[in-house]
Design a protein around this nucleic acid. Structure first.
Lengths: 231, 231
DNA sequence: GGCCAGCCTTGACGAATGTCAAATTGGCGG
DNA sequence: CCGCCAATTTGACATTCGTCAAGGCTGGCC
């Protein structure tokens, strides 16, 4: 595979740190792969064998308790990096929410390559720092927000995420979008039960804040109200 | 200041990536500072002006809502790195829990220095990845664990943290330790109220799982029971 | 077009945790 | 050693959210 030249995330993923010569070297140790919706790519507490760039699709990062409770601890979108470099084990599972395409590397190979390419490591560092910021903001939501605040925050986040895809930094929030999550998965993101999520959705609909044209679609009718609810 | 040679965290902080020549250059752009217990070093949503290494003491990283709810999103111990490099703004406040000594750098200077020293950036990347792992484990606690599981997990975490300080990687869990947190701060770490924390503590004491010799001290009497409760 | 399975919604209820208020403790300065 | 103040504990009660149990809807498939 040297589909890198035409790769849709070539300029957004960490690959953007590399020139054409370097990217050829990187592409020599990686390969493209599809992951069907529902399929796992990485298993919690397993040996960390793989890392990858997301080309297309959405994946969830989860941790679980022994008795089966699940928390979604991250969501990976196109151009995001997944997996745990520089460590024997991976502490979260990665499962595709939609059919996805990824560019995978053996962790060993990637680690070695990264250490030889400081610009790549720098991109990875910037990405990891940004992800840590996002994760900490989510801790506040999990620890201190009410169900209705959680739902409002979540919907605003989704709306921002799925804004006009044209130019990444300048995109405006989407009024209408399709959730990559089932109700149960929304619950797993927010630390709620499926029933509470469902009730909050219907209440927002009844109050005219959103419309729900189908199970996965959301239409934001009153963004101001959502923002106010998000706290 | 070139107290680096005698610095207690010289071999554990990110500085360990640097040789004596490089460390002299780094020390030229930094300075030591003390932070009194309760004093702030960095403010949420402020310009990110400072980064630092913790030499001694414990600091909390927090985010707050407008209406004053607080969530502790991280805790920094000696040798930890604090602040937000490579970003205009810092998304968490940093406040000392105990009197602390830190080695501070203007973020600009540090960013520039780091970009010129890939080994330093690599250490920072490893640290940030590890912190992200810990943070994600904490999300599971915040989103999915009960009050009693939260308290048990927290006490085990503290016990591990304050194990024999002699040799970092080989330390065993401490049976008895002094919390750097007030009850309210424990509540802010766990996403609970102070009353719930207090009740859980007394219950563990009544059940003979721990003893509470003083307000800040904890004596773990039955570690197995704690582990079982932690889930 | 109809049927089926899984997902989602709704209702009734209960338990865990938060809220508010008061009593108690313990540490510190005088 | 005493008294004071803040932190903590305890109690009574309220509320949110989770649990359990139906039932309904939707979208895919024949």
């Amino acid at each position: 595979m040297t589909a890198c030249e035409t790769c849709v995330v070539r300029n957004r993923a960490i690959c953007s740190a590399l020139d054409n010569h370097e990217i050829a070297a990187l592409s020599a140790i990686g390969r493209r792969r599809t992951v069907a919706a529902g399929e796992s790519l990485i298993w919690e507490d397993d040996d960390s064998l793989l890392v990858a760039n997301v080309i297309d699709g959405v994946l969830k990062l989860t941790t679980s308790t022994e008795d089966g409770r699940e928390q979604i601890v991250g969501v990976a979108y196109p151009s995001d990096f997944i997996g745990r470099p520089f460590s024997q084990t991976s502490r979260a599972s990665v499962v595709a929410l939609t059919d996805a395409r990824v560019c995978v590397f053996a962790r060993n190979d990637f680690d070695r390559f990264a250490r030889e390419h400081p610009e790549l490591e720098h991109k990875l560092l910037e990405r990891t720092l940004a992800e840590l910021d996002r994760t900490r903001a989510w801790m506040m939501l999990l620890g201190r927000k009410t169900a209705s605040e959680k739902i409002a925050t979540f919907l605003l986040d989704m709306s921002d995420r799925f804004g006009e895809t044209g130019c990444a930094p300048l995109r405006r929030p989407a009024k209408r979008f399709t959730l990559p999550f089932s109700r149960q998965q929304v619950a797993d993101v927010l630390g709620l039960t499926i029933e509470t999520v469902s009730r909050q959705f219907t209440r927002l609909k009844q109050d005219g804040v959103i419309d729900l044209p189908s199970r996965r679609e959301v239409d934001v009718l009153d963004r101001g109200a959502l923002a106010a609810l998000a706290g």
